[in-house]
Design a protein around this nucleic acid. Sequence first.
DNA 1: AAGACTTTGATAATTGTTATCAGCTAATAT
DNA 2: ATATTAGCTGATAACAATTATCAAAGTCTT
Lengths: 141, 141
Amino acid sequence: METKPDFRSLCQQSGLALTHQRQVIFDALANMHHPSPDEVYAKVKQLIPSISHATVYKTLHTFVEHGILRELSPHHGTLRVDMGTEPHHHLICTGCKKVIDVESDELGPVKFLGKLPKGFQVERVAVEIQGLCEQCARRKK
Amino acid sequence: METKPDFRSLCQQSGLALTHQRQVIFDALANMHHPSPDEVYAKVKQLIPSISHATVYKTLHTFVEHGILRELSPHHGTLRVDMGTEPHHHLICTGCKKVIDVESDELGPVKFLGKLPKGFQVERVAVEIQGLCEQCARRKK
DNA sequence: AAGACTTTGATAATTGTTATCAGCTAATAT
DNA sequence: ATATTAGCTGATAACAATTATCAAAGTCTT
């Protein structure tokens, strides 16, 4: 057992009960790249056949809340569109998902130094400044 | 009529029929910030009470396909999580929504020069390089 | 080991989105 | 202008993702 002590202390720090389900989900996540809840469910089900979708969802949210996981990109629950008039970036509250525009010139240029996968055609570079707005920050206190 | 000639030529360029619904949706979008399909629906319904959800969805997708609109952030349809081990950024195919990791050091530093809204606490700055992967680029040709 | 509190799993309910298809509309050719 | 054709719309049903509910079971103190 190498990872178990780690997760145990993570739970203690966060005041979470250390359950078998959470442990297995945590371990599964370590080997997955950008899984959706359903992908996590499928993987964990191999080890805990009785696991429920609800448990996976709840666990993922709990982990995100306690900083054990991050959302790849704030999940608004719905599609959001934007009339592409002027290029701009976004400030997003991870609590309430509110979006605030940031002018392009308020941001230094973003330089990509690495190499792209073969054939990848860049359309645009979007910068998301993620954090908590005033109200959500207060609420979390 | 100021905006109508604009939209008419946009449609012509894209080979789209100029319909009343599309015109009204287009106009509505000009005054909305990061609307969800449902918010667009609500606004357009005031002018076209018979409009259907399906039409709004189809129109938004059509607009995105033809570059008239952009998705705020690629909508994977599901939540995606990420074990926050090392900070890194993402390359996202807007076609198939595939996500590829980009090491943090392949990207020059991102500097924010403007001022944040009062009380906003930044948690992290995420850079999304959006574009088309090789397969999707080929398919679109 | 007992009690208090948290978590789980089953299920139903919601919400967001897409498919289908008949009837209507816009673009083009006449 | 009118007819033809291809494309678009609206209603509805189907589907997918997520959340709510709540009794049973597990975890963490003491």
